[in-house]
Design a protein around this nucleic acid. Structure first.
Length: 862
RNA sequence: GCCGGGGUGGCGGAACUGGUAGACGCGACGGACUCAAAAUCCGUUUGCCGAAAGGCAGUGCGGGUUCGAUUCCCGCCCUCGGCACCA
């Protein structure tokens, strides 16, 4: 092997060495356990930079902890069910199973090339019956406990393809393939009672101090606990129940509004063609909340009158599209004086507005500056009859008490969180183990008959679930009475698969149980790493499912993930063309040639293959659906895995989103070449036994101080802060100093040996191949990952003098060298000896002097 | 629309607890080496004024608190993520 850096030869050799020594199996070695988990990938075809970043972070943390002497579990698997496989099947006619498994093969080999310390013995794929049978088994237990239940839910319906669409497949209110306007449709589905756990899911967020604050905030807001009251309004022999967070504004209610799906709306529509048309109009469009929230507020009077429970006044009942059937009771009391949406609606339809809360300065309420006024919700009650003058929270209590006396209302807690609908009208997912018998109804598949195996040869064509046209799957006998019956063809939400895979990693070979006692050994996960886009749904469902399994006695932790690192997304430009039908065809950025102006704005973009223009579609997270994933393969082929790993960690802190650019990868490459050359040059003069160099002075003494400062900084950055970019910068900075140093004597060479051994170990988690090789070159036995993390020599950290910055009135005017720990007077005296400082102070009066010890002195003059 | 982030040189970013703004790297420019190129090495690189010493301005925009604000507070703008069937 030549003496220069050739990762193409070096890296495979090092990987063979690891494999021969089972270096990455979790059970080997000694020490306390550390479970390092990264979110498993959807096998979309190729690795992209988002994956690369995610798994490199995970590997750096794993290897860092391994070097701390811990026994690390870093598993890998495949989130293998889901929509993209069906889309690929439609496009190429390949069955989702084959497409998925081929992708897994390819991506596994890519991951192996990157040198991740993964325990491949534990690999799993959620599309394997050995995995998903436990989804089915557990679902049946939940059904028995009443946690799983059936009710209707609303879905996007494509009337042309006669199929249910995912929200992603609805574009501007139209089906992505047919272009037909989408409608809402009610169908029966299975739900899990996550709302039963709402309080616990909210409360235990406080125990997750290893989670980013922003994720905990988002989850708390998502669960959305509000204290309020339910109030009943009599209405033509029926009752309209509403939930409100502000019962104190009840006297300001001037109308009622119900959702289009509300039973009362349907009832009122009978014999009212205009209202029937309006309700049908509300059924247009998809079910996505974002779409509903931005649509124009519309409504229609039902003609019905509701009775105000305290005043007896008649209030008109409207149907309004901004009232959601899925929150509260699907009906509201509208208080346009103090609610922005009600206000907007009242203005549009000329409904009365009444102020019932005083403004802070007792101003008169005025529609025109309502936007300044409506927020004033914290005043006293006015225009509220017997409640006038009460502070709002007292009014809240008084009104609820009076409603309770009349039996027309009571205090209640409401959550924004809804039960989790898990039914999907799709083929490529885990079958829901239910049989529909004409006589016995919905019958669970007996445990002995599990798993219900999904036939793998089918090819969806976009017109509904092919299981419905597959008699071998569909036709069966009722387990209770034996008559001909049909299987449920809905499959489970893929979030079910990803809600417990981390538990299965602890005992993936167990054919007799979902999890076993090994789960107790490894759980909870010490470090979870994944994209911020999963901050709410996946993480909430995984927390919920863990609690469900706990309550079944299967695991013994309350929370699955002790520490969470949410990596920012890797973004890339998207490019598309529209076909005749207006469908967007997406092109990979690597196939597009782009010209930009001086500010980086795109001037033109053409497809390389045909030279014709494509439209830029904005910068978005790398994803299969927009075909903007950048494959790291080409870079790995050119520079090797270590360079790409180093570059992806150096580019930005992990939590930050990052627009992908290759500019700078050369820098990482150059650094590794210099590191390699530096060690080789030192070794060429002969290696030394690693021992603490004595009797250093001058430059050597300073270099050793810098070495141990760097060791302390890198350990802190990798372990506590998890800012790998700054850890790498610190290593680079030290290497620059080390390479300028020329050892004149034996202690100097000992220092250089110590320095290179430390540098190689500090960089090892990031660039493991080169570190392993250089560790050998330095004359050390065994793997660098068994060598342990370098220790900080506290005695090396002390300095004879420190630099203190001197400011005059907050502006830097000089720097002085003083002994560490010098007091204000001493530093000030030194500062006044500086010409420039003295000039700025001159004959002015010193009003104040502020000292930040060993760092800064600010002299305030006036 | 609602919830949560982000905005700092030509570019990626650093400044951790309110204390030197621009570490480290890319790019660019100048130089060394070379027949030449690549690679490598050395130097300069926020803007403006200045020969220099030094000075003034500067962290999306507008205000505020403070001896001192990229950091805290108020109001905006832009942008990214999520919004329950993308995963």
């Amino acid at each position: 092997m030549s003496d220069s850096y050739h990762p193409g030869e070096l890296e495979p050799e090092i990987r063979r060495y690891w494999e021969e020594h089972d270096a990455h199996q979790a059970e080997s070695g000694e020490g306390e356990r550390f479970y390092c988990l990264s979110m498993f990938p959807y096998p979309s075809g190729k690795l992209h930079m988002g994956h690369m970043r995610n798994y490199t972070i995970s590997d750096v943390i794993s290897r860092y902890h391994r070097m701390q002497g811990q026994r690390v579990l870093q598993p890998m698997g495949w989130d293998a069910f889901g929509l993209p496989a069906e889309n690929a099947a439609m496009a190429n006619g390949v069955p989702p199973a084959k497409w998925t498994r081929d992708n897994i093969e390819h991506m596994r080999s890519q991951l192996k090339q990157l040198g991740f310390a993964i325990d491949w013995e534990r690999e799993l794929a959620t599309c394997d019956p050995e995995y998903y049978r436990w989804n089915q088994w557990f679902f049946l237990r939940l059904l028995k406990r009443g946690i799983a239940y059936k009710k209707t839910g609303s879905v996007n319906w494509d009337p042309v393809d006669q199929t249910v669409l995912a929200n992603e497949q609805v574009i501007d209110g139209r089906g992505w393939r047919t272009g037909a306007p989408v409608e809402k449709r009610e169908i029966p589905m299975y739900y899990l009672r996550i709302t039963d756990y709402a309080d616990e899911l909210l409360e235990s967020l406080d125990t997750l101090d290893g989670w980013p604050e922003r994720v905990r905030t988002m989850q708390a807001n998502w669960i959305g606990k509000s204290e309020g009251a339910e109030i009943e309004f009599a209405c033509e022999g029926e009752t309209i129940k509403v939930f409100t967070t502000r019962p104190d504004t009840l006297m300001g209610a001037t109308f009622m509004a119900v959702a289009a799906e509300h039973p009362l709306a349907r009832q009122a529509a009978e014999g009212n063609p205009a209202l029937t048309d309006f309700i049908a109009e509300c059924q247009k469009g998809g079910v996505s909340e974002a779409d509903i929230a931005v649509q124009e507020k519309k409504g229609m009077d039902t003609g019905l009158k509701a009775v105000h429970p305290l005043t007896g006044d008649e209030l008109p009942v409207w149907v309004a599209n901004y009232v959601l059937m899925t929150y509260g009771e699907g009906a509201i009391m509208a208080v346009p004086g103090h609610d922005e949406r009600d206000f907007e609606f009242a203005l549009k339809y000329d409904l009365p507005i009444r102020q019932v809360i005083s403004l802070p300065d007792d101003r008169e309420y005025d529609d025109r500056n309502w936007h300044d006024d409506y927020a004033a919700k914290q005043g006293r009650l006015v225009n509220s009859g017997p409640y006038d003058g009460l502070e709002w929270s007292k009014g809240f209590e008084a009104i609820v008490a009076d409603l309770e006396k009349k039996g027309l209302g009571r205090a209640r807690t409401q959550f924004r969180l809804r039960d989790w609908g898990i039914s999907r009208q799709r083929y490529w997912g885990c079958p829901i183990p239910i049989i529909h018998c004409p006589d016995c109804g919905d019958v669970p598949v007996p445990e002995a008959d599990l798993p219900v195996i999904l036939p793998e040869e089918l090819v969806p064509d976009g017109s509904g679930n092919p299981l419905n046209r597959h008699p071998e799957f569909l036709e069966t006998a009722c387990p209770e009475c034996g008559t001909a019956a049909k299987r449920e063809t809905d499959t489970m939400d893929t979030f079910v698969d990803s809600s417990w895979y981390f538990l299965r990693y602890t005992g993936p070979d167990n054919d007799d149980a979902m999890v076993d006692k090994r789960a107790d050994q490894w759980m909870p996960v010490d470090q979870y790493i994944g994209g911020i886009e999963h901050a709410i749904l996946h993480l909430l469902y995984a927390r919920f499912w863990t609690k469900l399994m706990r309550d079944e006695g299967l695991v013994h932790v309350d929370e699955p993930f002790r520490r969470l690192l949410t990596q920012g997304m890797v973004l890339a430009e998207t490019y598309y063309r529209e076909d005749e039908a207006g469908r967007r065809i997406w092109f990979n950025p690597s196939d597009v040639e782009v010209q930009r102006d001086g500010k980086g704005e795109i001037l033109s973009a053409v497809l390389e293959s045909d030279g014709r223009p494509v439209e830029p579609g904005g910068i978005e997270k790398m994803a299969k659906s927009k075909n903007n994933g950048v494959d790291p393969q080409e870079l790995v082929d050119t520079y090797g895995a270590d360079t790409v790993r180093l570059f992806s960690m150096f580019a930005a802190p992990p939590e930050q989103s990052l627009e992908w650019s290759e500019a700078g990868v050369e820098g990482a490459w150059r650094f590794l070449k210099r590191l390699h050359a530096g060690v080789k040059a030192h070794v060429a003069e002969g290696t030394l036994p690693g021992r603490k160099p004595e009797k250093l002075d001058g430059e050597a003494r300073e270099l050793r101080t810098r070495l141990h400062e760097t060791i302390a900084k890198v350990g802190d950055d990798m372990g506590r802060r998890q800012t790998f970019n700054t850890a790498i910068a610190a290593i680079m900075e030290f290497c620059n100093e080390l390479q300028r140093f020329e050892p004149g004597d034996e202690p100097g060479r000992e220092l250089v040996q110590e320095a290179w051994e430390s540098v190689v170990r500090l960089i090892a988690p990031v660039t493991p191949h080169i570190a392993e090789a250089l560790w050998r070159d330095l004359g050390r036995e065994g793997s660098v990952f068994q060598a342990g993390w370098p220790a900080v020599d506290e005695s090396a950290l002390t300095r004879a003098a420190v630099t203190v910055v001197v400011q005059v009135n907050g502006k830097v005017r000089g720097r002085v060298q003083v002994a560490p720990g010098s007091d204000k007077e001493a530093v000030q005296a030194a500062a006044m000896a500086d010409d420039n400082v003295a000039r700025h102070v001159q004959d002015k009066t010193i009003r104040k002097v502020i000292l930040v010890p060993d760092k800064l002195l600010n002299i305030v003059v006036g």
